[in-house]
Nucleic acid binder design. Structure first.
Length: 591
RNA sequence: GGCCCUGUAGUUCAAUGGAUAGAAUAGAAGUUUCCUAAACUUUAGAUACAAGUUCGAUUCUUGUCGGGGCUACCA
């Protein structure tokens, strides 16, 4: 039980006795006491005034007194300012945590429970490489999955690869036309980048053709339709759906290049999946669902045979679920896949990490699933995150402002190397250790920068700021960790329990913060919000740095103090490592 | 047009309806014979506007003004 819950429980018991009424924990708002007041935690009294018929001062006295008398092991003193009852927790409480947990590397993580969750994330198209927006998605999805695991859930990470459709055919046509047999090997180009180049070439050729046709007297709309290269792409899609062998072969070959490229990127940034779905396998799913939906009267068929769902009573529109030619649309296969996920894994919750531009789509998906009474429909959850923008505005492929994922990662690692070399602290490092260190720092900075913001909000990616290694950044936390490890290498922690006495303010601050770790983990899981964890870890590191500057560990005032501080430092390092790990960020032993 | 999101220091971000709105960075001033100065300390600086609900509003409601997204027989 957390200290906040303990306080709430104690308050419930106290007031229930005093007033012979029912109170529950949520009646008591317990906050950390503001720095300018004396105390550790504060009970806000205002909301209790009506129920007790007291004024704040009287109620505060009464409650404070009772708590002090009945929970003498927990509270040492209290004071009341306006409607706030400030409580000071006994040092012994904090010291007890240290005593029991200082050697527990798993501190904060929870025991396994029965819940199974799937987190779908990344979900790229195979016609171009990953970009900065994908990185936010990937870091977020991965971290949320790990946070849920740390809370005891069984988690499956999944990915749906968008490997079919007109966009893929565009790259294929352009490669046929302009490729001259180019392969990743003979061009020394990463496969996803190579395919992306042909996607761009297609669009260039397409634009040129339109221009030509317009010059020949055609109007723009017709020109767009009559462009030979576009017609060829459309024909290719038809051929693909018909399974034409040479088209299938080319498709498999080029997708293979892309997958190899993606795998390299995933590997490099530490993303992994338990299950990968391919749209080419799922796009026919959901046809049966359409049948059933018609039977149930959830869907209606128009005269031209297209199938629709009317969501106007839910404040949305009429939405198509099957074309007049009988083919599935995007949402149909999503319904099918949602069912398949459930059947395969019997999941209790299905989380989709998808940008907020698809809010409407996901709302429709869930509504349809509910109306069809699909199992676990109510547990479909769209983890909607905001777009990543540049200081100059939105990324636009047309204007060439899209930040490539591989490029930016490389740039971060390069900057880490450059900066580390300037500091000149790594003269005795092995070359392999250096490579690892630069990657740890560069990726750490990148991940922290993208995860420290509330996922729901759109964010600005400022290239200059993102490679800053000072302040609210990943490297700041990593540095704190490395400093602790440096001490612990020289001064081993004794495994013997030590009887401690009293705590200095900064020592207590650290323990108060450490105590909150599990609550933060629970909060991050409940909100599916890694930024809560990032902020927490940063604050803990900051507190430690203040402590480090103010008090010596190795040359502490007494051997008892030294042991206390060593254990404290070890606990901080454990929490930092666990917390950063859940963000997908490694921490170096030295830097 | 309809639906949804959003507006906090110069900038990027915090704040389950609670105390004097926190950080970081940029600015100003300092700290190294002492465990890693990628650090620490001090300082100045903000809730778009207007009503309402409340003991109390950055938070909830309404309106005004900004910014963004969605609204395809695309995915």
């Amino acid at each position: 039980m957390s200290i906040v819950e303990k306080i709430q429980q104690a308050a419930v018991n106290s007031l229930s006795n005093l007033y012979n009424q029912e109170f529950n924990a949520s009646d008591f708002q317990v906050n950390q006491t503001k720095e300018e007041f004396e105390g550790d935690y504060t009970i806000v009294l205002f909301s209790l005034l009506k129920k007790t018929g007291q004024n704040p001062a009287a109620l505060g006295e009464q409650l404070g007194n009772t708590l002090l008398n009945n929970y003498a092991d927990l509270f040492s003193q209290y004071n009341i300012i306006k409607g706030f009852l400030n409580l000071t927790i006994k040092d012994n409480f904090w010291l007890q945590i240290l005593k029991e947990q200082f050697n527990n590397a798993r501190y904060g993580k929870m025991e396994p429970n029965q819940k199974k969750v799937m987190v779908e994330y990344a979900s790229p198209n195979t016609n171009k490489p990953l970009h900065l927006g994908h990185l936010r998605n990937i870091f977020l999805g991965w971290s949320v999955a790990e946070i849920l695991k740390a809370n005891g859930n069984t988690v499956y990470k999944s990915c749906i690869v968008n490997d079919r459709g007109i966009h893929i055919c565009k790259s294929m046509i352009a490669w046929q036309k302009f490729g001259n047999g180019a392969t990743p090997e003979n061009t020394k180009t990463k496969g996803d980048h190579l395919v992306g180049e042909y996607y761009v070439k297609f669009n260039d050729a397409y634009k040129a053709e339109i221009k030509e046709l317009i010059a020949a007297g055609m109007d723009e709309k017709t020109a767009e339709k009559e462009s030979p290269i576009m017609k060829a792409a459309q024909q290719m899609l038809v051929d693909w759906e018909a399974g034409k062998p040479d088209v299938m072969e080319l498709w498999a070959k080029m997708n293979g290049w892309v997958y190899a490229g993606f795998d390299e990127t995933y590997n490099n940034i530490g993303a992994d999946f338990d299950k990968t779905y391919y749209e080419s396998n799922t796009y026919l799913l959901g046809k049966k669902t359409v049948e059933e939906g018609l039977q149930k009267g959830v869907f209606v068929q128009d005269a031209d045979n297209s199938v629709w769902i009317d969501l106007t009573t839910d404040g949305l529109d009429r939405k198509i679920v099957q074309r007049k030619d009988g083919t599935s649309v995007y949402i149909t296969q999503d319904i099918g896949l949602a069912q398949q996920k459930y059947e395969e894994y019997k999941i209790d919750q299905s989380i989709y990490v998808i940008g907020d531009e698809q809010n409407y789509h996901m709302k429709v998906l869930k509504l349809i699933a509910e109306k069809l009474h699909l199992p676990n429909a109510e547990n479909i959850y769209h983890l909607s995150y905001g777009m990543v923008e540049l200081p100059s505005g939105k990324m636009k492929s047309r204007e060439g402002t899209v930040v490539d994922a591989d490029d930016i990662v490389k740039e971060m690692i390069d900057t880490a190397r450059q900066h580390t070399e300037e500091l000149g602290k790594v003269k005795d490092f092995e070359p392999s250790e250096l490579v690892q260190l630069y990657k740890t720092i560069g990726l750490g900075a990148m991940k922290f920068y993208l995860l420290r913001v509330d996922p729901k909000k759109k964010m600005i990616f400022n290239p200059q700021e993102s490679i800053d290694f000072h302040g609210f950044t990943g490297p700041f936390v990593q540095y704190t960790y490395a400093r602790i490890k440096s001490i612990l290498r020289k001064e081993p922690v004794s495994n013997q329990a030590i009887e401690f006495s009293t705590l200095l303010p900064l020592e207590k601050d650290l323990l108060v913060s450490i105590e909150q770790f599990q609550s933060i983990l629970q909060q991050a899981a409940a909100e599916l919000n890694p930024s809560a964890l990032a902020i927490y870890v940063f604050n803990l590191a900051k507190t430690f740095n203040s402590f480090y500057t103010a008090h010596s560990i190795a040359n502490a005032e007494s051997s008892e103090k030294k042991q206390l501080r060593l254990q404290l430092a070890q606990m901080v390092s454990n929490v930092l490592k666990t917390g950063m790990g859940l963000l997908g960020i490694q921490v170096p032993e030295r830097m």
